[in-house]
Each structure stands twice: as C-alpha cells, then as structure tokens.
Write a protein that binds this DNA or RNA. Structure first.
Length: 939
RNA sequence: GGUCGCUUAGCUCAGUUGGUUAGAGCACUGCAUUCACAUUGCAGGGGUCGGUGGUUCGAGUCCACCAGCGACCACCA
C-alpha cells in the first residue's frame, strides 16, 4: 500500500522518530502501565469464551438460579439455523452468528430470560453427496454399490460427526453465547421421534400420501428432488417443429424430440378455429416407438393459440405441465420412454431402447428428417432445471413417491396447508394478530405469498440413504393374517403400516426411502424445545421462538416449511419475527465459492484481526434483505476501532482514579457528554430492539470516536473529572458488549472487575435536563476550536506557536447583556479552549471593533478575534472572509424565500417555522457582522 | 415472460415515520506526532441523491413513467 499518509510515516520514522526515541520504546518495552499498547485478541479470546461457558450464563436456567435473571422475566428465544454438517463454516455463517449473538447478548443484558439454542443439520442429500464425492475421489467408482447401505451410512456418520465437531468449535470461536447444553441435531433421537410423530400425524390426516406422479429425478444422484431443489440454468437448445406423420394435421414443436416417442395427445385451444373441428379425433402414428402412438386431439384452455403453431404435443410421462393436462383429461394415456437410469425404455421401441436420451434425440431427428417430417429448426435459449446437489440436468419421470398435500383440506379445520401458510404472515392464524409472524424486511412477505400461489404438492421421499427413514412398513397380505396395528389398510396385495416403530409380526419391511431433509428442518422450532411433549418446560416457555434470522436464499426451503409444520400441528406460528438478510459477497460482488477460490475462512480472518473486528465488520454492513460485501479494508477499519477502544481504556486506567462516587458533572463538557450518552443509549436501544444493527453500531462508533475520544477525553486532560469519564466509559463498554464481546470483557478484566459484562445491566436511558441547550453551547466551543485549527492549517501556522484571542462579549458588562450570553461559554471554558486550540491568552472585550492585527472568527452569534499580526497575510484572510460572507448571503436568501412563501407559514408545523425563522435571524446577523468586518479589517 | 428489489462522494454503503445547508468508512490532499493510541491525531477537497414528470408549504425519502443493474420464480410447447 502506497499512500501519501504512508510516505509521511516512513519519512517521519527515519528522519525524526529514530533520533528522538529512546531505544527501549522503539523495541516495544513496557510502558509505565502493564497494559499492552495494542489489543491482542489471541491473548484473550479463548480464555474469555471458556470463562463465559464455565460461568453457565449461556444457559437461561443458570441465570435464574444465580439471580441474574428474574424467574418471571420475559422469555426471549433465538434458534440457530442448524448449519449443515458438510464441512466447515464460511463467512456467511459468521455473519449469521454475529447477528444472532448481538441479539442474544442484548436481550440477556436487558434482563430477559434469553435462550440462544445451537444445532446442526444432518443435511441428507448434501452430506451424502459430499461423502460420495470424496469416496469417488479416493478411487471408488460406485460407493453405493460397493459399500451397501449400512457401510456407506457408517462412513457418512463418521464424516458428519467430525464435521459437527469442527462446526461447534467454529461457532464458539465466533463468541456466540449459545446454550450448548441444549445443542440439537436434526438426526438425534429426540428429533427422530419428532419426525416420526409428525409423519404419522400427517399420514393419519391424509395430508401425506403415496402417489404415482411425475417427479424431478436426478439420474446422477438416483433420487428425487423437490421443485425448490432445482437450479435453473440457461443453455442453448434447438427447437424442432415437425409432424408425427405426413398426414397428421398439426405440426408440433419441441426441444426434446426423444420424449415425443411417449406422446399421447396434442392439445389445442378449444376455441382455436384452425383446430376446433379436430378435437376428439384420434390419430394412429408410427414414429418408431414400441407401439404406434395413438394421438388424441384435445382442447385445453391453458394452450396459447398465438404461440408457435398453437398446438402442444403432450408427453404426460416426461413433463410436469403435460402430466397436469392429463389430470384434466384422464382419457389420454401415459407412456414412459425414459427410465430412472436416464436411458430409453423398451416402450420407446427397439431402435431407441437402451440409448441415452441424447443419443436417442439425434437418432430420432435423423429419422424424421429423412422422412421429410421436420419442418423447422430454430436456435433458442432454454432454461433447464438441474439438481442443486448432484449438478445433472433433471429428468422428469413418473414414479410412485410420498407427497405432502398442500391443497387438501385438513380434517376438522376447513382449511388447507396453503391457507394456513398465508394466514401466518398476513392476518395472523385464524385472524388472530398475536399469531402473526413479522417478516423483516416486509418485501419478503410478498415474495413468500407469491411462492405459495405456485406451490405444488411437496415430494418428500428421497432414494438416498442418509436421512430419516420413512416410518412406513409393508408386507404381502398373503404371508400373515392381518394383525392389530395403529393404522393399517389393505392396498391391493400389500398391507401398509405407518407408526413410530416397526409393527409386530413377521414379514414387515420398511420403506427404503428417506425423507427430504427439510421435513425435519421444518420441525426445528419446536422439535428442539421438547415437542412432541407439549408439557415440556422449554416448549411452554420459549415457543413460539422470538427471533429467527435466515438468508434470503433459504426462505422457501425453510421458513415456508417451518410455518407449514407449526401452523398445522400446533395451531400457532413458529416465530414472532424473522429477519432476512442477503448473502455475503466478496469485495468485487461475487459470491464466495469453492470454484472461484475466493473463500475466506472466518476462523483465519478472526485470528488475524480479532473476532470482535470480524463481528463489527460484518454487522456494520448488514441491512435487511440486502446483500453485503466483505473486504479486508473493512476488517482493518474494525480492528483499528477495537484497538482505539482498548487505548481509551489504557488512558483511563493510567490517567484517572476509580471511585464509588456517582458521576458529578461540574462543567459544560461534563453535562454535554452525559447528555449525549443519554441520547445514544436511547438511540442504540431503539436500533437494537428493532434489529437495525448497522445503525446501532454506527451510533456507537461515532459517539465513541468523535464525542468521547476526540473531545471528552481531550477535555479530561484539562478538567480531570474522573467520575464522569469513568461513568461514560463504563456505559460505553456495556453498550458495545453485544457487538464486541471479547475486547469489552478484556477491558473489564483489566479494570479488575470480576463480574462479566455478559450479565451486566444494559444502560438505562436517563432523561437529563437541558440536553439540547448544553449540547448547543458545547457545540459553540467545538466549532470555534475547529475554525481556529482550520485557520492554523490554512495559513500554515506552526502548531507549536500559541495564539492570543480576544473574545467579544467576554467582559463583565457584556455578560449582563442577555443577547450575548453565549460568549460566557468562553469565559467558563477558558482552560479547555486554551488547550484544544493552543491559545496562550484569552482577552475579553465588549467592543465590536476588532483589535488591530486580528481576524474574526464567528460561530452562530459568537465571535472572537484571533491575533495574527505578523503571522499571516491579512489580505488572504480578507478573501477567505469574503467567501464565508457570500455563502451566508446565499443561505439567508434561500431561508427568506421559504419564509416568504405564504403557504409555508400556514401549513408547516409551528416548530419548523420557528426553527427556520431563528436560522434566518442568525444568518442575517452573521451577514451583517461579516460585511462590517470586511470593511474594518486592517493589517 | 412474471414477481420483487437496487441506482446517494473515486470505491463500499448508511440515511427508521417526508422537515435545519445529505452522512460514514476506505481512498485522496496538507500538516503534525517521545502525547492512551503509527492499528495515531488535526484540518481539508469531493455529491444538482440514475432520468423525466407529479403530489406537497417542503422530496434522497411518497406516486407515475423511462433507462441501467440484480435476484427470485417460470419446462411458451
């Protein structure tokens, strides 16, 4: 990095610092205090986390037992979205943990009964596909075949356990104050019980059914996947228009000619004059399939007559929409020509059977071209669904699978699952506003509702092995006589049983399939709290969950399923507030991904800059719903800030004395800083209560750096009011603690305070009197000092040279004049003024005539004369004042115009009008004074 | 194609319900620095808030249209 500032440092270091600096300092030998000059997170973090964990305060029960939280305190619960046990956590997780932990620590400090519950997700298909990939990479060609179900599961379990360990270590390293004693895993016994209970309940209610329908099939993964697990990608394709035979009346178009071997109908719009008369006719065509196709012409409203040929070749077996058409027209048949192995079936005919779909396509096109049936070929771009886990293009095939019926009426409720899902975010369940989830930001409510509209029955069975086994058993009826069971019904030849455990008796075999991982995730908000025992303490106390956060990409997968499951089984909402954030990108706006190689390990970056810096960098950027970017520059800024806080504490430790006395404000500065503190407590509390993390951190940051470090600490060097200094800093530490748990706790320890900040009381907003009056008066001093410094910079006055000022109105006589009351601030704060503006002498005058050789500096109605005789070029100053005057005049004019507008006075609120009028008065006076001064300025 | 967003300083972004002359961090310029802090301090330059129109006493903020960008949804066969 090469900057002007950096060059300055280098020059300074070699030309002056080395000469002046005693050997010891340069080598970093200890200061008079034993507190290190720089905060070193590595020295603290592990130990502090251990201390917190051992204290037991992560556990809300312990907090009550030890009297930190009142037994009847308001409960506050946060559930960690369980990270997948597929490896290690990434920066996005770090961001989520930061969000949750800020919320948890804030509410805990406010005295609420706070539970932050951690967990991990077995992530069915994600984990299995990861382990299979690893096995293939290490030389196995087909892990499922070579190992078999049990041995492969062993491997996956081992991988998952190791990954779970890594993940919990990482969550700890982030400083997350979660209650490890309640750690939940989506695949442990308690959760298995919950899953089976829920499955059976839905099965009994007829909401889970087994049906023969087309599903998304991953040939590579040899499993189904739900609509939401598809990732649509664009790719070039060819759109072929052809006729089934020479005498077939309608040409049809397709991008997948090979599936046409399974066509059983052509759909046209029922009113289409071109084809109306053909509806109902059946054509026998011979295109190479095992049997000649009988194509029935049907009329369907969904067909758009203006698109293409206005006719759709219907392939019910290999298209979701075509399957839906068949639901409306049961008279047409279904022929499956592609199998689960991705190859053409026997029904596709001897020419094609056994070929891959792609091979069959080429062959089919060649055949119809030869016969002169191909009418048109166009290049188009097409969207195809791919499996988000296995990566291959999804085949749509008809199969018997398990589904959750979302459009079916729930017995006894008169509503469907979809209805409940809508109510939960709109009117509240059953119209009860208490049972309404607040979605932040609101726009996701719309997105979610829109998604529900197009939601189809959810396919929940998977053919992978890693996951909750479907709690259903079958046996051939002929083998054993029907036995007593909770649910059992004859279905043709086989008996079927759904229950918590295998049924008694011989010959039962469990369904080999497992459940979609989101089935168990959907139960997370209550399966972690003791359900199905609805009398469990945690369930009664912490459900519905108070705060939930998640990434926008997971809203449909997860939020929707949690709402579905909870509204259905508990007749309430899963959580009161859900905070949805965007994804974290790298500094160039790209997603973090393995293939780009731009991944950053949160633990590494946390070690380098400190976990607090990482948390601050991540949180100060988070606004609801928006993506944010991560960069090392932001890390540096945050680390520097953390170090600043540390050094403020060093100053306080060495330059002030602790005492039990209440803060005793003595000066304007004291009242100012206490007033400001009050204000920012109020603001920060409001921001955190409403989950405005970036605003909260910004409020604290500007107070800490600007008001406190740059002004009050400097003033303390003069006024030395230790009680106020320490009081403000103490409150500041507590305010920062949720964001920066480690450094604040470390500082707290160096102060010799044994009580953890984690359970310290959140500062209360105290309404102090005259905040604004003190603030305004202090601002006069501040602005005046800044202006004097500015003049010093502009005229390159040696910083060591002290100046003399004459304060107008500082005389006894002037002080009696109420209009000039403000000038009293200089008299009252002379020492501060001398120190911060490097003034050697303050003279007072009640004459408006500038003393010889001075320039005048004005803030509001207060002005002083700065003695610069022989120091600067007075003519240059005249020019500077001229510009200031011009600015003031422009501003005064704009204010006048505003006030001159009759409707402004009429319609604007009183306060705004008064405010504007005062501003104009002030500005006019300033203009007057300045122009007078321009004429009288003299060298 | 549908839906939902985004566009504010060179860069990354704040700006809660419309109200003083629009903010921060980084970057940039100048100065200083044996000072709690070189992971530092002080001062400064830089924006007609994407465009056009509207509502309003008043618009970065509300509305409409336009342009550019993005995300999600969708098998126009």
């Amino acid at each position: 990095m090469k900057t002007a500032r950096y060059d300055n440092h280098v020059r300074y270091f070699f030309t002056r610092y080395l000469k002046k600096c005693p050997e010891g300092r340069r080598l970093g030998i200890m200061e008079p205090t034993d507190i290190p000059k720089a905060y070193d997170p590595k020295e603290w973090e592990d130990r502090l986390y251990r201390k917190w964990e051992e204290s037991g305060f992560f556990n809300p029960d312990t907090c009550i037992k030890k009297g930190v939280t009142k037994a009847d305190a308001e409960p506050f619960s946060i559930l960690m979205p369980p990270p997948n046990v597929t490896g290690v956590l990434h920066l996005g997780h770090a961001m989520e943990n930061s969000i949750m932990d800020v919320v948890a620590r804030y509410h805990r400090m406010r005295g609420e009964r706070t539970l932050f519950l951690p967990g991990a997700d077995h992530a069915a298909v994600a984990t299995q596909s990861r382990v299979e990939k690893n096995l293939v990479a290490s030389g196995m060609s087909n892990p499922r075949q070579e190992l078999g179900r049990e041995r492969l599961l062993e491997k996956i379990r081992a991988f998952a356990d190791e990954s779970k360990d890594t993940i919990t270590k990482q969550v700890r390293a982030m400083g997350s104050s979660c209650d490890w004693s309640r750690f939940a895993y989506t695949f442990d016994d308690a959760r298995v019980l919950a899953v089976n209970t829920m499955f059976k309940k839905m099965y009994d209610d007829g909401l889970i059914y087994k049906g023969y329908r087309v599903v998304n099939w991953s040939v590579k993964g040899q499993s189904t996947c739900s609509d939401d697990e598809l990732e649509h990608i664009e790719r070039p394709a060819t759109l072929y228009t052809f006729r089934y035979s020479k005498d077939f009346p309608i040409p049809v178009a397709t991008t997948r000619p090979e599936t046409k071997l399974g066509d059983t109908a052509v759909a046209v719009h029922p009113e289409d004059p071109r084809y109306r008369d053909l509806i109902g006719q059946i054509f026998e065509v011979e295109i190479g399939a095992a049997k000649p196709l009988s194509i029935r012409i049907i009329g369907d409203e969904e067909v758009d007559p203006s698109f293409g040929t206005g006719a759709v070749g219907v392939t019910p077996a290999h298209s979701q929409t075509d399957f839906d058409i068949r639901q409306r027209h049961p008279e047409i048949s279904l022929v499956q020509v592609i199998g689960t192995d991705g190859k053409m079936t026997a029904d596709a005919g001897p020419t094609y059977a056994g070929l891959t779909a792609l091979e069959a396509r080429e062959k089919f096109i060649a055949a119809i071209r030869e016969k002169g049936l191909l009418e048109k070929e166009e290049d188009i771009t097409q969207n195809v669904g791919t499996s988000d886990r296995f990566g291959d293009v999804i085949e749509v095939v008809p199969m018997e699978q398990w589904f959750v019926a979302v459009n079916k009426e729930i017995p006894g409720r008169g509503k469907t699952l979809k209805d409940l899902m809508r109510e939960a975010v709109t009117t509240g369940l059953g119209g009860d506003p208490e049972k309404r989830t607040s979605v932040q930001p609101e726009q996701f409510e719309k997105i979610y509702l829109h998604w529900i509209d197009s939601l189809r029955d959810w396919c929940i069975s998977r053919q992978i092995w890693w996951g909750h086994r479907i709690p259903v058993w079958y046996r051939e009826k002929s083998k054993v006589e029907s036995e007593k069971s909770e649910v059992s019904e004859g279905e043709g030849e086989a008996e079927i049983y759904c229950g918590m455990e295998a049924p008694e008796g011989e010959g039962w075999e469990q369904d080999p399939d497992t459940l979609d991982t989101w089935f168990s995730s959907g139960l997370w908000t209550f399966s972690t709290l003791g359900w199905p025992d609805t009398e469990a303490d945690d369930f009664k106390t912490f459900h519905p969950v108070t705060f939930m956060q998640m990434g926008s990409e997971i809203v449909f997968f997860w939020m929707a399923r949690m709402i579905l499951m909870t509204t259905y089984t508990l007749d309430t909402i899963p959580f009161k507030t859900v905070y949805i954030h965007g994804i974290l990108r790298d500094k160039d706006g790209r997603k973090f991904s393995k293939s780009l190689g731009n991944g950053i390990d949160p633990i590494d970056i946390g070690k380098e800059y400190g976990t607090d810096a990482l948390r601050l960098a991540l949180l100060s950027d988070v606004t609801p719903g928006n993506d944010s970017r991560f960069s090392t520059e932001k890390m540096e800024t945050s680390r520097n800030f953390v170090n600043k806080l540390w050094n403020i504490s060093r100053y306080i430790a060495t330059m002030s004395v602790a005492s039990d006395e209440a803060p005793a404000p003595k000066s304007l500065s004291d009242r100012f800083i206490l007033g400001r503190l009050s204000q920012i407590i109020h603001e920060t509390t409001g921001h955190l209560s409403e989950n405005r993390f970036s605003l909260a951190s910004e409020t604290l940051r500007s107070f800490t750096l600007d008001d406190f470090a740059d002004w009050y600490v400097e003033i303390h060097k003069v006024e030395k009011n230790d009680t106020v200094l320490r009081h403000v800093f103490d409150a500041l530490l507590r305010l920062w603690h949720p964001f920066l748990p480690f450094v604040t706790e470390a500082i707290n320890e160096t102060r010799g305070d044994d009580t953890s900040l984690m359970i310290a009381k959140w500062p209360e907003f105290e309404k102090t009197q005259n905040i604004s009056s003190d603030e305004n008066r202090f601002k006069l001093i501040k602005d005046l000092i800044v202006k004097i410094r500015n003049i010093r910079t502009v005229y390159k006055i040696d910083p060591k040279q002290k100046l003399v000022i004459t304060a107008y109105g500082g005389s006894e006589k002037a002080l009696q004049d109420k209009a000039l009351d403000e000038s009293g601030v200089i008299r009252d704060n002379e020492e501060v003024f001398k120190k911060l503006a490097r003034i050697s002498e303050v003279r007072h005058t009640d004459s408006r005539i500038p003393p010889k050789g001075t320039v005048r500096i004005q803030v509001g109605l207060l002005y002083i004369f700065l003695h610069l005789d022989g120091i600067i070029d007075i003519d240059a100053e005249r020019a500077r004042l001229g510009k200031e005057l011009a600015d003031a005049e422009t501003y005064a004019k704009s204010l006048e115009a505003k006030l001159g507008n009759p409707s402004f006075a009429e319609r604007a609120p009183e306060a705004i009008v008064t405010q504007t009028r005062n501003l104009l008065d002030e500005t006019n006076t300033k203009v007057e004074e300045l122009s007078g001064h321009l004429f009288s300025i003299s060298s």
